[in-house]
Computed example of a mutant assay.
Amino acid sequence: MPKPLVDVDTVEAAAFCLSDELSPFTSAWHAHRKHQLLYSAQGALHLEVEQAQWLLPPQRAAWLRSGTRHRVRVSQPVSLRTVYLEPRLVRLPPEGECRVFIIEPLAREMLLYSTRWGPERPPREPLADSFFGTLAQLLSEWASESRAWRLPRARTPELERAMAFTLKHLGEPISFEDAARAARLSGRTLSRRFEEEAQTTWRRFLHDARMLRAMELLAEEGARVTQTAYAVGFESLAAFTHAFHAFTGECPRDFRQRVARGSEPRAGAAPATRRTRAR
């Protein structure tokens, strides 16, 4: 990642948008004194906080409370749009350090339009102040509809190796034993690490990672459901459709068509209850 031309924490304006075109990189862990609204207009952004990690394709955005330590990873070109807001502007901030939510058409248009006012904007500009004030108020409403589409993070190098191996081979018929060898742990120890550090199992981690990757692939232009199913390790289209519907509340084809239209999920669409410790 190129060195920033400006230190965002020293910008005098209460709110502004930082627009950047990113090449593959991994940032250092860091935090900001302002609230952040992270959005990728093109390409998928990988976001990590202390306890969790998310994939942010253009259909999702993330709210980060001020002071939240985080890092981002980019594996493909990304058009990043980040809105920074002084905490005083958000009267009812969403709960928690990070909330990930579906981008509605209005939210998307406002985030893209906010690039009009970058970090060099005057500290006091009535139109910009009014715009960002409205955005800050809507943020609480948008983020209240957050979804649990996330993966846990590792706290030890061994579990991190197992997770990284799993994420790298989502489209292959990998086994728990493969992940244990990558972690350089016994199967029993790796199983315990997943339970204690991530509050889940390796099989559930693999399943959820495949679903998140499928959502990313289906959001790409020209995506095909059958190819996506094979790309995330399913040999049966029926099994993939069932798993995807249970995870997102939508069939893969409906999800792909909705994303292409830029519309919201159909009324009542919600993921099925997830079994945290399912094997």
Rank of each mutant, 00 (worst) to 15 (best):
A183K: 03
A183M: 05
A183T: 03
L185D: 05
L185V: 08
L185Y: 09
S186H: 11
G187H: 04
G187L: 09
R188E: 12
T189M: 13
F194I: 08
E196L: 08
A198K: 00
A198H: 04
Q199P: 00
Q199L: 10
Q199R: 14
T201R: 09
L206T: 09
H207D: 12
H207R: 13
D208R: 11
A209Q: 05
M211K: 10
L212P: 02
L212E: 05
R213V: 05
R213D: 10
A214W: 04
E220R: 15
E220Q: 11
G222L: 01
R224N: 04
R224P: 00
R224L: 07
V225Q: 07
T226C: 01
T228Q: 00
Y230E: 08
F234L: 07
S236A: 06
L237E: 12
L237T: 05
F240V: 08
T241K: 12
A243K: 03
F244A: 05
H245Y: 11
T248G: 02
T248K: 05
E250I: 00
E250V: 04
E250L: 12
C251L: 11
P252F: 08
F255D: 07
R258Y: 04
V259L: 13
A260V: 06
A260Y: 09
A260Q: 14
G262K: 11
S263K: 11
E264P: 01
R266M: 13
A267D: 15
A269F: 09
A269K: 10
P271K: 14
P271S: 15
A272C: 13
T273G: 15
R275P: 10
